[in-house]
Design a protein around this nucleic acid. Structure first.
Length: 226
DNA sequence: GCGACAG
DNA sequence: ATCTTGTCGC
């Protein structure tokens, strides 16, 4: 567990980091070619501490999602999952993987939220601020915000608001599938985060970069524990 | 006071 | 997040 004092400290840290956010385009989405998908899994999710495994897959979204580079990193993780503090659990191992990649992708796509977070510091934003990169968060479920269910039609979407402010979109990436939630991590606008998500979509519900990272991790994990 | 709550 | 194959329904 974790004591209340420490949580309050981390909240302050998130608020401080949020001051460094740049929610505007560093590069037009039209010029983005390479997108890195980032995901994390654990050998034992119920245990603490446990071993976390991070995977980063760099791919060219303009060349049929051709994979350019893949890296994996294992590391001990000793921080529980606490809603709104996901970064403190998963970011350390992710940063190790980040240091390992040799190519410099135009943008990063993470599993989870960007500024669609109570303090605008979802894991994608935290990552983007720490590394000063273009990042986007795309999660399978909502953490915070108000929105209306988008129509059941491929690529329909609806805005998600927090404190009356537009923070992201609920996007129906596939017909008959629940919407995903996209928001800027850092160095990109809310509208462009939606454009990049759409640009990163293949024939599945989840964007290819994170979907691929997730699949590769499942295989890596099975090989590791078996 | 009660419910909600990324992975 | 993970345990797990086939099966039902839009």
């Amino acid at each position: 567990m974790k004591n209340l004092q420490q949580i309050e400290e981390l909240k302050k840290e998130q608020l401080n980091l949020s001051k460094k956010l740049k929610i505007k385009d560093r590069i037009p989405v039209e010029k983005i070619k390479t997108v890195a998908g980032i995901d994390v899994t654990f050998t034992d999710v119920w245990k603490n501490p446990t071993t976390g495994i991070a995977c980063i897959v760099v791919m060219d979204v303009t060349e049929n999602f051709k994979v350019i580079e893949t890296v994996y990193v294992e590391d001990t993780v000793d921080f529980p999952y606490i809603p709104t503090f996901l970064a403190y659990r998963e970011l350390p191992v992710i940063l190790k993987a980040y240091e390992k990649i040799k190519t410099k992708p135009d943008a990063f796509m993470l599993d989870g939220m960007g500024i669609l977070h109570p303090r605008k510091m979802g894991i994608a934003s935290h990552f983007g601020v720490i590394t000063d990169t273009v990042s986007v968060g795309c999660g399978k479920s909502k953490l915070v915000g108000d929105y209306e269910e988008p129509p059941n039609k491929k690529l329909s979407y609806s805005p998600v608001y927090v404190d009356g402010e537009l923070r992201g979109f609920a996007v129906r990436t596939k017909k008959n599938a629940n919407p995903v939630f996209v928001s800027p991590g850092n160095n990109i606008s809310v509208e462009s985060s939606l454009k990049l998500l759409i640009k990163s979509l293949g024939r599945y519900k989840l964007p290819e970069p994170t979907r691929t990272a997730h699949i590769l991790l499942q295989k890596y994990r099975k090989r590791l524990i078996s």
